[in-house]
Design a protein around this nucleic acid. Structure first.
Lengths: 277, 277
DNA sequence: CTTGACCCTCCAGCGGCTGGAGGGTGGAAG
DNA sequence: CTTCCACCCTCCAGCCGCTGGAGGGTCAAG
């Protein structure tokens, strides 16, 4: 029983192109080639080999691997070691895919969280809990903050309870040499190299969500300052900025859409006075 | 701040080759190209874009997809739909991989089962349970059996309790026109087209495992026949052949290693006589 | 002036095919 | 006898995301 390539293509369930390619590769040879026309003819034995090739391809073996398997094995039991190795390969591929999927999931969840937040553009009074934060403290200019986020998240990311924030330890504004701490709330204290953990006191805070690029944030600070003064309060250090929405993980994003929550813990002047006495 | 391509390669964590390739593709353009030397120079903005590209590549996006994403999105929230779709893609890739893995697993388990079987080359008396089998019955020659296995396993494979077998309904040997049923034990009766299910009676059977190609199986039948006669038993129809090891799923295998168990249910002549009376 | 570390362009190759151009063959229909 | 169609052939390009190498220019240090 002899087949022309087109007929054999139906039997073997491999395209004519693929059959010619496998011939060229020496993977599946026709049983006979007509010397005059150059036509390829295939037989039953070729059909068996073709079926084996199809099966092995379906299991994800490369053509080279299949060549090796077909040359080395003549019985199903001989391919057991190949299948075992292939199984492990697939397992690790799956593991990789799942890791990628987890990354996507986390990203989407974070995004959803941000989306779901209803943003109040007014001043809000909040009771802040005490936190343990792990951070890197340095003296410098505001725009150096960005450089510290990478190392911070790399080391503390696993233990982070929420997104990163910046703590300003100065009582007043400083252009150069500001005392800045880039940090993140963590589950457990963590000290390693420049990274240091410490408790961060809670309390009643005046908060405001600033929308726009960071270089306009002083407007929002002014609002908070005015509010604090009007209410007869007094700002205590340190103050914090929480990055609700900043330059994304992937994009710089549009600075006009950046959202930064400013939190300044404030106490009544009389309370302070009475406590001081 | 300007980088030569080699320096930028460290910043961007992309190989020089890749950077040149991305340039050619229009995916990541240098900020400036020296008209005289042709040197590429990159800046901070390019570093940002490079980081985005790296992230997206790590999530498995194609360069084309990345081009589209970078041209359409300018904020992390814009890529949510892309990530969602990508997540689904990955999920289906994982599903495919798992299907492949299951196939490999099943194959390995079957192999192990066969390996683990201790093969007794002598005549063995077994008590066979009653079974429900789904099979295709036809009249023809022995070597047509092979053709029916494919369709059989395709339809009944899901419900199969064990490997396929052949039932011979003739009392004596027939070369042409034998009454043959290719079947498989199933969990539940199953009727569809040529596929029909029915119970298969159990009983005390004389069994022998035949090793070698099918065309020598008559030797083993002779042995069984002789044994039955010697013991004063009488063979009842149908008899069965169980393919312990035959042409594999992938390889034809070595016919000398084929193992086929012949099972002939036999009763004492006196029992039969007494029952007949 | 040489050395060596950069940089450039251009081309080939990986794997596993697919598509198409350009041409031959064989049988049936008009 | 021509024409058509369905086959078959070979050879080359293209997909994707790079990588490697050949062959050559550039730049700063020794």
């Amino acid at each position: 029983m002899e087949y022309l390539i087109g007929e054999f293509s139906l039997v073997a369930r491999l395209s004519v192109k693929t059959l010619r390619f496998y011939h060229e590769e020496g993977l599946l040879l026709p049983s006979r080639i007509d010397a005059v026309t150059g036509y390829r003819y295939y037989d039953e034995a070729a059909a068996g080999r073709a079926a084996a090739i199809r099966e092995l391809r379906a299991l994800g073996f490369s053509l080279d691997a299949i060549k090796e398997i077909l040359s080395r094995c003549e019985d199903d039991e001989d391919i057991v070691p190949y299948l075992e190795r292939r199984g492990e390969e697939i397992a690790s591929e799956i593991e990789d895919s799942r890791a990628t999927q987890r990354m996507i999931q986390e990203f989407l969840e974070r995004q959803k969280e941000i989306q779901g937040m209803n943003v109040d553009r007014n001043i809000v009074i909040k009771e802040l809990p005490e936190l343990t934060v792990a951070g890197i403290r340095f003296k410098g200019k505001y725009d150096q903050v960005g450089k510290y986020f990478g190392p911070l998240m790399k080391r503390a990311g696993k233990y982070a309870l929420s997104g990163p924030m910046t703590i300003y330890h100065d009582r007043e504004y400083r252009d150069e040499d500001a005392d800045i701490e880039v940090c993140v709330p963590v589950r457990k204290a963590l000290n390693e190299g420049e990274l240091a953990s410490h408790p961060l006191a809670g309390g009643r805070a005046v908060t405001l969500i600033h929308q726009g690029p960071y270089d306009t944030i002083s407007d929002s600070y002014r609002k908070i300052g005015a509010y604090i003064k009007d209410c007869g309060l007094r700002a205590s250090v340190p103050s914090r900025e929480i990055y609700i929405k900043g330059p994304g993980l992937i994009f710089m994003g549009n600075p006009k859409k950046y959202l930064t929550e400013i939190q300044v813990i404030a106490v009544h002047v009389d309370d302070e006075a009475s406590r001081a006495s």
